[in-house]
Amino acid sequence: MLSKGAVRSILSNPRYTGRQVWSKQRKEEILIDVENVALGHETRMQWNRPETWV
């Protein structure tokens, strides 16, 4: 038998209740210095528009 806490945890989890939202954010890789590509890039998270969420 499941405890009340376990049931509460399951019912509040969006993955189990069908409310999981995907594609809210995306990673963007931006060059640190365009003139010196060897310096690498910086990764930033950017929000997608809500109408593109799945």
Results as ranks from 00 to 15, higher is better:
1 M>D: 13
1 M>R: 09
1 M>A: 14
2 L>D: 03
2 L>S: 05
3 S>R: 09
3 S>T: 15
3 S>W: 06
3 S>N: 10
3 S>V: 06
4 K>D: 11
4 K>V: 12
4 K>H: 07
5 G>Q: 12
6 A>I: 03
6 A>M: 11
6 A>K: 09
7 V>G: 02
7 V>I: 15
7 V>R: 14
7 V>E: 13
7 V>N: 05
9 S>M: 04
9 S>W: 01
9 S>K: 05
10 I>E: 01
10 I>Y: 09
10 I>S: 01
10 I>H: 02
11 L>M: 05
11 L>S: 03
11 L>R: 02
11 L>T: 03
13 N>Y: 01
13 N>A: 06
13 N>T: 03
13 N>R: 01
13 N>P: 02
14 P>T: 08
14 P>A: 10
14 P>C: 11
14 P>K: 06
15 R>D: 08
15 R>G: 15
15 R>P: 00
16 Y>K: 04
16 Y>A: 09
16 Y>H: 14
17 T>N: 05
17 T>S: 08
18 G>D: 01
19 R>M: 09
19 R>P: 00
19 R>Y: 04
19 R>V: 00
19 R>D: 07
20 Q>A: 13
20 Q>G: 00
20 Q>P: 00
20 Q>H: 10
21 V>M: 08
21 V>Q: 13
22 W>N: 11
22 W>G: 00
22 W>F: 14
23 S>Q: 10
23 S>M: 07
24 K>R: 15
24 K>D: 00
24 K>S: 08
25 Q>L: 03
25 Q>D: 07
26 R>W: 04
26 R>I: 08
26 R>C: 07
26 R>Q: 10
26 R>M: 08
27 K>W: 06
27 K>M: 10
27 K>I: 11
28 E>I: 14
28 E>C: 06
28 E>D: 06
28 E>Y: 01
29 E>T: 08
29 E>L: 02
29 E>I: 04
29 E>C: 08
30 I>P: 00
30 I>G: 01
31 L>F: 04
31 L>Q: 12
31 L>K: 10
32 I>V: 15
32 I>M: 12
32 I>T: 09
33 D>K: 10
33 D>F: 08
33 D>P: 02
33 D>R: 08
34 V>D: 12
34 V>M: 06
34 V>P: 02
35 E>N: 14
35 E>K: 11
36 N>P: 00
37 V>R: 13
38 A>L: 13
38 A>F: 05
39 L>C: 02
39 L>R: 10
39 L>I: 02
40 G>N: 05
40 G>F: 03
41 H>F: 11
42 E>Q: 14
42 E>S: 10
42 E>A: 09
43 T>Q: 07
44 R>P: 00
44 R>W: 05
45 M>N: 03
46 Q>L: 14
46 Q>M: 12
47 W>A: 13
47 W>P: 01
47 W>D: 15
47 W>L: 13
47 W>M: 12
47 W>Q: 11
47 W>N: 14
48 N>W: 00
48 N>H: 06
48 N>A: 06
49 R>L: 13
50 P>F: 02
50 P>H: 05
50 P>E: 05
51 E>S: 12
51 E>T: 07
51 E>Y: 12
51 E>W: 07
52 T>D: 14
52 T>I: 00
52 T>H: 08
52 T>Q: 09
53 W>C: 06
53 W>M: 04
53 W>G: 03
54 V>K: 03
54 V>Y: 00
54 V>I: 01
54 V>P: 02
